[in-house]
Design a protein around this nucleic acid. Sequence first.
DNA 1: CTACCGATGCGCT
DNA 2: GCGCATCGGTAGC
Length: 211
Amino acid sequence: MSARPGVPATPGQAAVLDAAFFARPAPEVAEALCGVLLARADEGLLARIVEAEAYTEDDPACHAHRRRTRANAPLFAAPGTAYVYRSYGVHWLFNVATGAEGRGEGVLVRAAQPLAGLERMRARRGARPDRELLRGPGRLAQAFGLDGSWSGVTLSDSPLDLLDDGLRPAVTAGPRVGIADAADWPWRFSVTDCPWVSRYVRSARAPARAR
DNA sequence: CTACCGATGCGCT
DNA sequence: GCGCATCGGTAGC
């Protein structure tokens, strides 16, 4: 059976991504995360990331843009630290800190293709099409059981890991989803023509697109 | 498929 | 109070 474009279903030999991978600028890391495996070892969950967005402290849409607070502190922590926050009072969104320690930046993991542990994901997500298990950052965090208790966790010391199995899919860059400030910065990266990618929704508060 | 809209916690102005 | 890095239900094409 044939795989979807650019995204084989079966992972090969995989190496855990180290701090050096995340120590680069967020846009570089966001692009490089497309095709990377997300694994939760304690629950047997595995998925391939197909979409990620970059946020930096020079970026008005970034939570670290104004100042460092208790809540956004993980963005300033060592590269490879998880930052999980609540959006709209309902959903949790999973990020990974990037850049040098002390720099307030990170990458939002927005969507992935489920590969293993689908029963557990379905149990958390409810009776919905498998296509929607990990399509969108709120859904992905819910399926993986990630909440505020994961914020500040160093991934290398946790059951949650990012792994490289050598896949290098074609990646497309475009504007980020749902933000009003810096709405047109092309910092959303996704696997080209991949059905697991979330749909683009422009913020209702974003200014009209330049043309 | 698209469009609309309410839910709901919390950090910030 | 205001404003979200979202989602799911409903209505309509």
